[in-house]
Design a binder for these strands. Sequence first.
DNA 1: CACTATTGTGAGTAATAGCTCAGCTGTTTG
DNA 2: CAAACAGCTGAGCTATTACTCACAATAGTG
Lengths: 206, 206
Amino acid sequence: MPSTDRRLQPRRKPRQVRAELTRDRVLTAAAHVFAEHGYASGTTNRIAERARISIGSLYQYFPNKDAILAELLVRHIDRGTWTQAEQLDLSPGSLEATVRALVGDAIANHRDDPQLLRIMIEEAPVSQELLDTIARHERKRVDQVRDLLARHPDVHIQDLDPAAELIVFTVETNTHKLMAYPRTTPVETFENELVAMVTRYLRGDQ
Amino acid sequence: MPSTDRRLQPRRKPRQVRAELTRDRVLTAAAHVFAEHGYASGTTNRIAERARISIGSLYQYFPNKDAILAELLVRHIDRGTWTQAEQLDLSPGSLEATVRALVGDAIANHRDDPQLLRIMIEEAPVSQELLDTIARHERKRVDQVRDLLARHPDVHIQDLDPAAELIVFTVETNTHKLMAYPRTTPVETFENELVAMVTRYLRGDQ
DNA sequence: CACTATTGTGAGTAATAGCTCAGCTGTTTG
DNA sequence: CAAACAGCTGAGCTATTACTCACAATAGTG
């Protein structure tokens, strides 16, 4: 627990292939361990054990525990693609189809490991740097969605900025809940309702 | 860190007034400390210090650290009132007014200490018991909203159950975000958009 | 006032977990 | 092949922190 002087850089950068491999082993192991035990109980020793490397090696490439989770988060963010939405950006369809694409992308981006994502979002230590990264990413996403809405003829909203923000957040968290927690009712039902809600909202008054 | 055999009961129940007072001091102190430092860094010693009592006294009335936060959460839940919505339950108005009442209540319930709530929701140790309490509470709330919707003539939704669940969750989290994180744009704007979204959704197709 | 029950105290304990470092094993290079 | 470099090891150091307990102080009671 001693977060002494908060080293920010790892003491070593991988130069050989095996080192790169070790680094990856740590990350995959960490993803599993965090998802299974949560952040607090996902100890660095446990991660090293799971990665089948020694605790010392772990600290060669990560300055501290927080950095591991931070990198996992950044990777998740970078990996996030919005393929369906981009498709529509080129050849737009009905408003409902557009919204459905947005929701579909969100769900696709959470398919991998919803548990881990829950941990990352709910238990991640919030360094200012990480917060900034997330905020920047969200801003970009909001802009993207706003532009998409701006170009669609069926959208009847005065101020698109808060609308886009509302939609991105609502879709994100609902998807998140949908995936992370087990449901009795089928996922499609909720997906449909979510799509309906957003679509009707965008279609405007009445 | 040694959560040995997880004692569930405190070793003592308050019998004199001063004891009750001490207990309350702990809770208020804990609320402040958790809100300020987060759960993990909100140590029991810090809480005791802030409450101006000794660490020993703290452990007279709470079996462990988790129990303190659990009680704070339970108190928050119990305190949560839905006055505006109840009002409308008796004499319903327009659909928009009804939705606005729901949102208004949600915001009112988060006025006190949004930071603390964030901590409680995001960093709380999730004991099964606590999870059950929360789930039970949410279930009750969803049922309440579903009944409210069922009685309103302007609601055009086939399956009210997922709709109520979607609305409760969406309103809750959006409110939550609205209150916990500082905004540049005025709160009312988002409130209006949220109300609009839910209203149009409920009004049904087209 | 004496006796008991209740409440308060805080130095100290035990366990935990992040992290280091001295030395070893592999890999590359001239 | 040998020197230099890169990577790996894991026992153990250090700091932290939830929690205990023997004792002191205060309140209640007859």
